[in-house]
Simulated scan of single mutants.
Amino acid sequence: MEAIIGQRIRNSRIHKGLSLQEVADSIGVSKQMVNKYELGKSMPTSDKLIAISKLFNQKIDYFFRKSEVVIGEISFRKKSNFGVKKVNSLKEEIRIQIENYLFIENICNVSNAFENPLQDYAIQEEQDVKTAVNTLRNHWNIGQDAIHNIIELLEDNHIKVIEVDDDSKKFDGLATVIDGKYHIIVITKAMPIERKRFTLLHELGHLLLPIATLEEKQQEKLCNVFASEMLLSENNLITELGNQRSRITFEELKNVQEKYGMSISAIVYKLGETKIMSQERVKKFYQKLNFDAALKQSVELSRYDGQEHSIRYENLAYRAVSEELISMSKASSLLQISLDELNSKLTSNLR
């Protein structure tokens, strides 16, 4: 038990980005004693464990629960000044959420089997990616329709979406596979919705496309093509705006944005990529965007009117407590809400 509690304390400390000394000062013990807690060489007294739980904003039962998930190495596409401390903190946040997610799935006896319909594809160039996108859309029964809720689509197809807070604005998303079977995309919660949708699909490209042997730069490029084609295929773009255009109105771009949930800048880029517009025209658009304050504000204020938020985990937790598969206290811990708030939410349940 000491080892389990010790590991939980260490994980929580890393998650909060605190040093041994900072934890020691907060709970009123020595730095050496905190180190002993983490190594499982000493057990915190009840009052110290309460202090630790308050410091880390965790329920007491969290420190007694054995970790059932081991996350392998995960990589971040990040700015150069994204420090090791922040990376480790983010990894712990991801680990906590994934562990809770898998726990609640198992309690509810929900299948989490995932099938990758693109695993046997040979991907070397952009056209290969576009062909793969058509295969995936057909396999997931979405045809050429606009995707209104990407997170819902991913979770319906057994890909877990974890949303995290990142005030530093240096992290967008990542994709990882745990134990060779749990496919997970992690996304920053607060970002413009079009960027969020593009990032989700970019990470999906990393999960599904067999491109691990390619250079990193090429992988990123192909995943961008994958995201772009999933959001707005070349065929759909031609249908909406025509085969060739010398000029295009802002209202047309806004209408396409509202339908497909893709940023105006990304739509213009795709117009150039598909040669519907000349690269010279695309370049002029970006130049105008940089120097025309009114246009820049219009583009920044224009938003897709949709929702991209994961609710599956929350729904499973409410399902588990309403079916009495877990206790109220456990549900409160999993949902990170008080018992009073949980009671309030459950009073409206249908019985």
Rank of each mutant, 00 (worst) to 15 (best):
N290D: 09
Q307T: 12
Q336F: 03
L325D: 01
V177F: 05
K160R: 09
I238R: 15
K270W: 05
E252F: 01
N11Q: 15
E194A: 12
K181F: 00
P44N: 12
P44F: 12
T199Y: 02
S302H: 07
K221I: 03
L342E: 08
K85S: 15
Y37P: 10
S263D: 15
V129P: 05
L231W: 09
L154D: 06
F64T: 05
R319S: 02
Q219C: 14
L295C: 04
V29L: 10
Y62L: 07
L55T: 11
K170D: 14
V34L: 05
Q32I: 01
F64S: 09
A331I: 01
E251K: 03
R13P: 04
S42H: 14
I60N: 15
D25M: 04
E68H: 05
G40Y: 14
A122W: 14
V299N: 08
A266Q: 08
K170N: 13
D167K: 09
D165R: 03
T131A: 14
F250S: 09
V87M: 14
T199P: 06
L20I: 06
F171E: 10
G173E: 02
E216I: 08
D172M: 01
A175C: 02
R312Y: 05
N106G: 04
Q307F: 08
N88T: 07
K160M: 08
E240N: 13
Y269V: 07
L232A: 13
L342Q: 09
I5M: 12
E163R: 02
L339I: 10
S233A: 11
K169L: 04
N81T: 13
K48N: 12
Q287W: 06
R95L: 15
L209K: 00
K275S: 14
L271T: 14
K160A: 09
H206L: 02
I71L: 15
K189H: 04
E194M: 10
K221L: 10
K78P: 00
A113N: 00
F63G: 11
D166K: 07
F285H: 10
E2R: 08
P210N: 03
N255Q: 13
L49E: 12
C108S: 00
S80H: 07
I151E: 06
D292N: 13
L289I: 02
T239W: 00
F171S: 10
L346W: 07
I276C: 11
L253F: 05
K79W: 00
S12F: 07
A132Y: 12
I264A: 12
D167G: 09
Y37N: 14
H148W: 06
N141H: 14
K85N: 15
M262A: 11
A331P: 05
S338K: 08
K181Q: 02
V186Q: 01
R77H: 08
P192G: 15
R137Y: 11
R351T: 04
L334A: 04
I162E: 03
L214A: 12
Y101T: 07
L154C: 04
T135H: 09
S111P: 01
M191A: 03
L301N: 15
V70W: 03
N138E: 13
S302D: 11
V177W: 01
V23S: 12
R77Q: 10
I264C: 08
S329R: 07
Q287Y: 07
I147N: 13
A317M: 06
E22I: 00
K91N: 14
V256E: 11
S53M: 10
L339W: 04
E216W: 04
R351G: 01
I104Y: 05
A132N: 13
S26L: 02
I326E: 03
I311Q: 10
I27E: 12
Q119P: 04
I178M: 09
S111Y: 01
